[in-house]
Design a protein around this nucleic acid. Structure first.
Lengths: 252, 252
DNA sequence: ACAAAAGTGTTTGGCTTACACCCATGG
DNA sequence: CCATGGGTGTAAGCCAAACACTTTTGT
């Protein structure tokens, strides 16, 4: 079983690195304190070694009959009950000491879910939502992974049409602004923001207005662009990192 | 060996997917026809099945003692003799039918090398440079991978400080412009381009001038920014996809 | 009537673009 | 002294930031 050129290495460390798929899922939920929307993500408690009892990103091994993205989606459904419409590859993490006792390579995806979808999470003692900016120490290198996903989310928010995936089918322009403000953590000028959105592609105005506010009823809009999950290519050619087409220039 | 829930599946397809690291390497070399710089990349001929005899990206399995990036760098050195200063993760490819006879997941890196480095390639009947825009049918899904790497390169060129990695330690601003023109495949205004570069960060003018031209000697500059290879984090937080900081705004 | 947010208009400054022009060298 | 590309100047035009102002609802 041990190959000749490595007879002096223990058999365990000769086994190929194991490959897992994990996902960082973001949703906006009202803050307990201020009530304003903030970023949350669901975590799963480890029920085996290593890191038994600690919180971790949902994930699992790659089944041989699934593509990477299918594996991410299925695993999410199995562990949390979520089925995000936005799902995209984030990065492959393969450091030598990410786990203890074995070599682990994780291909990590990231996802966005709408608030009503998020409510359907099968929460339990082992599955819970946490505020993204107040995480305890997670299993493996998952804190670093979340940080990277947050960086990517903010980056992509600045020049991609991504904010709509946090919202339902119809939304007001002010709701889109609140998404930007929550993710980027700064105030934006309502007047200029609205102008930019109206001139952005894939934003369609409807004939409907949101009723029940204690002021002038805002018009509802619809997003007509594609969700990356069903895109033709696995690698949605939209830069985060890279780099994506500048559909929306800069956010005020 | 075969688990109960998959007794009807052949044993071979039960083996875990194999994991490989490959790299797309870009360099600028003078075109045979026009002499102007164009994009080239080195390929390696397959010496075993599958795809025996076809050209493929340099790559190989992941050794258990190497990080992903180290594996990419070492493999590059082994197969081509190249040691790029710029090396960054591109994407993880894991489609079901990328290879024949087994399930293969490839974590792909991309690299940039300077012309003088490129000359040191150990070329042979099994290692050769090809023009990036005139590739034959490659092994596996490597044509798609090269296309994606090209897209990422162009994308990142537009708002990242990446062009310098195609050049030596000192260079003229016109040489930088030629890099942009070669990669983006369009002409740029020399006057405006030079102004943008001079106001860009990490561009330091030297006291030296390039001699031997048949016109006014251009000043030489130096790039003082970091090369991602030695960056602290594996994932260089520069968007390509992401998303990246806009160090250089837009190219004229 | 008033508060509050939706929605419109207008000014300003910065930055890109286009292009005219001068500079320094080799032949 | 001419050709060639290096390098500078500058006006036009576009776009985003700032902010004043009008509109439409609920209470």
């Amino acid at each position: 079983m041990v190959r000749p050129d490595s007879a002096n290495v223990s058999e365990r460390s000769e086994q190929p690195p194991s490959l897992a798929i994990s996902t960082v899922i973001f949703a906006l939920r009202p803050s307990e304190s201020s009530g304003r929307p903030t970023l949350w993500l669901p975590l799963v408690r480890r029920i085996r070694q290593p890191y038994l009892g600690q919180w971790a990103l949902p994930g699992g091994p790659l089944a041989h009959s699934e593509s990477l993205q299918d594996a991410a989606a299925r695993n999410l459904l199995d562990t949390t009950g979520l089925a995000p419409k936005y799902l995209e590859q984030l990065y492959a993490f393969g450091g030598l000491h990410r786990s203890v006792g074995h070599r682990l390579v994780s291909i990590v995806y990231w996802a966005l879910v709408q608030p009503d979808e998020a409510e359907l999470t099968r929460e339990s003692t082992n599955v819970q939502w946490f505020r993204a900016d107040r995480l305890e120490a997670l299993a493996f290198d998952h804190n670093e992974i979340v940080d990277y996903a947050l960086w990517r989310l903010r980056n992509k928010m600045e020049y991609g049409s991504i904010a709509y995936h946090f919202l339902g089918e119809r939304f007001t322009l002010a709701q889109v602004r609140e998404v930007y403000e929550a993710v980027l953590d700064r105030q934006l000028d309502p007047a200029n923001f609205r102008r930019q959105l109206r001139s952005a592609p894939h934003i369609q105005e409807t004939d409907e207005y949101l009723q029940g506010t204690r002021h002038r009823p805002p018009r509802l809009y619809r997003y007509t662009g594609p969700a990356p999950l069903y895109g033709a290519n696995q690698q949605s050619k939209q830069p985060a990192e890279g780099l994506n087409e500048s559909e929306l220039r800069r956010v005020p």
